[in-house]
């Protein structure tokens, strides 16, 4: 009787373990959610461009779920769909994985900023305050002061003397390498970054069918756009021949009680 119960327990544990592994694997391998792409209702030039001819530009407007423009986000023009190019989504680096050894103060400080590395120039204005509150910054500052004997220089070169390389730029480097690989797999043609109005104009490529994608979600669990676009002939009066509005899936509102 006791042996039978133990066997049942073992089976149950094995089954639960298998379930957990399957769930984890499914979560890790599933691509990020897709987002919507709407072309302007009437493209300015109506007939499709001839192959091998220069294509008219593609204008993109990128909005968040609240319809606010998303500035400084990179988009890629690809030859293949991001979701059918065999990209290894599970190997996408995560910011949290590059915080080993970071003090709670540094984690808190980083959480208030959204840069991929410590080299964001806008951080510099906050360095004088950060060296007082974050142990890693203090160590970097003291190190710089000892080497250069100049307070301003020690502050300006804070990132150079920052003790944790993984926190400083490792995530950015890995992300860049991942994007390089993914871009190659999906046939990257050009890339552009949105301006402060969430606008980007893709120019300088041949006519044909392409896909527009950010490849890497802008936030953890965020969407990846995969928009099929067909180019139009260049419009001599505008830098673009067609406009696409890109927005993530609408936010799900909590049901009212």
């Amino acid at each position: 009787m006791r042996t039978g119960r133990r066997t049942h327990l073992l089976w149950a544990a094995l089954f639960s373990g298998l379930c957990l592994i399957t769930a984890a694997a499914a979560r890790a391998q599933s691509p990020p959610p897709a987002a919507s792409c709407q072309p302007t209702p009437t493209p300015i030039a109506a007939k499709p461009a001839e192959p091998d001819a220069d294509a008219g530009g593609i204008r993109v407007f990128l909005y968040d779920a609240d319809k606010k423009p998303l500035a400084r986000k990179r988009f890629y023009l690809l030859r293949r769909s991001a979701f059918s190019a065999g990209i290894d989504w599970a190997s996408m680096p995560r910011r949290a994985d590059f915080l080993q050894g970071a003090s709670p103060q540094l984690r808190e400080w980083l959480a208030r900023h959204d840069c991929d590395s410590l080299y964001c120039p806008e951080f510099e204005a906050e360095f004088p305050e950060a060296v007082k509150t974050v142990p890693e910054f203090k160590r970097a500052y003291d190190d710089g002061l000892r080497k250069y004997r100049n307070e301003k220089l020690a502050l300006k070169w804070l990132a150079v003397n920052f003790p944790l390389r993984n926190v400083r730029s490792e995530y950015f480097q890995r992300k860049r390498a991942w994007l390089e690989r993914a871009g190659q797999q999906a046939g990257k043609v050009v890339s552009f970054m949105t301006d402060e109005k969430g606008r980007a104009i893709f120019t300088g490529f041949k006519a044909g069918d392409y896909y527009l994608s950010n490849l890497f979600p802008f936030g953890e669990g965020g969407p990846v756009w995969d928009c099929k676009v067909t180019t139009l002939p260049p419009n001599p009066r505008q830098m673009w021949a067609v406009t696409y509005l890109l927005s993530p899936p609408a936010k799900q509102t909590a049901p009212s009680p």
Binding site: C115, Y119, F172, M193
Partner: peptide
Amino acid sequence: HDVHQDVMARAPSLDEN
């Protein structure tokens, strides 16, 4: 320019809005 654009580009986070 593109590499440096990625390093330096920082949009205001949602908190800042």
